[in-house]
């Protein structure tokens, strides 16, 4: 198995990607596009995404993970991130994965904000998906922004021994950054408008969701999905999460979720 880092994309929108070639011994007709969450969350989930990619490649799938414009090793500044831009990048990466693997049976696996963004990218483009998996999806954009703001304030309060209330008050006046990354007014506005419903997930015959039992919104989305015969929803309640402050510098990963994701994408293998 080999992983190859490369640049792709058009014009100045240079993207950084890593292609995991499928294991020759177990090659299966499936190409998986891994979709990062936003900002700091992409850093926290880096190792998790890499492990998923390696396990899927070992099971014979071709896998591409990449950084959006303004993220990771790709060109651009984070403050230039937009929902439209992320959608463009997802579709560019989709084509790149097909070119690299020569496989047209493609699955998308999105994490966090990537889930609603990928679903809207799907609806705006002529794409055929074999599978769609959403992990810890952002269901309500406004709640997501509130969560990011709270996380940012708590982190600063802890690190600087400052009152969290004061930081939250300052952030509520003008949200220009979250957890070390600049955000534009238009991005915040677009994210706030995101609202994920069960019907949005009607993108292919094989849809899976993985989320937290503790999330009321996830339980609701799960309820909407169960009426769709072809959809599967898996719930986890893990003490190890991909998105905690501790996860940033910990070698421990949420192995149950990873195993479930790999199983769902690799037709039961793991």
């Amino acid at each position: 198995m080999t992983a190859t880092s490369f640049h792709f994309g058009e014009g100045d929108r240079t993207l950084y990607g890593v292609y995991h070639a499928p294991s020759v011994r177990r090659r299966r007709p499936l190409a998986v596009l891994l979709l990062n969450p936003f900002g700091e969350e992409a850093i926290r989930s880096y190792r998790v995404q890499k492990i998923i990619a390696e396990r899927l490649a070992a099971l014979g799938a071709a896998v591409l993970r990449f950084d959006y414009y303004g993220a990771g090793d790709s060109a651009g500044e984070c403050v230039e991130t937009s929902i439209d831009g992320m959608q463009t990048d997802i579709l560019t990466a989709h084509e790149e994965l097909i070119d690299l693997s020569n496989i047209r049976r493609v699955a998308w696996c999105g994490l966090g904000l990537a889930v609603p963004v990928a679903l809207s990218a799907f609806s705006s483009a002529n794409v055929n998906l074999a599978k769609f998996l959403g992990w810890d999806p952002v269901i309500s954009g406004s709640e997501y922004i509130d969560d990011l703001t709270a996380s940012h304030a708590k982190y600063l309060a802890d690190a600087l021994d400052m009152p969290e209330r004061r930081i939250r008050r300052e952030l509520s006046m003008q949200l220009t950054e979250v957890m070390g990354f600049g955000v534009s007014e238009s991005l915040i506005s677009d994210v706030v408008d995101l609202e994920l419903n069960g019907s949005d997930l009607d993108v292919c015959d094989d849809v899976a969701l993985i989320g937290r039992k503790s999330s009321g919104a996830f339980r609701k989305l799960h309820g909407q999905l169960t009426s769709t015969a072809s959809s599967v929803s898996i719930e986890f309640d893990e003490s190890v999460t991909w998105n905690s402050h501790q996860a940033l510098n910990s070698i421990i990963v949420p192995n149950d979720s990873i195993a479930a994701i790999v199983r769902a994408l690799a037709d039961g293998d793991e």
Partner: peptide, 14 residues
């Protein structure tokens, strides 16, 4: 920095 990949904390290396 620690085990954060080469882009650095908050992408600071980039």
């Amino acid at each position: 920095a620690g085990i954060i990949h080469r882009i650095g904390a908050h992408r600071l290396n980039v």
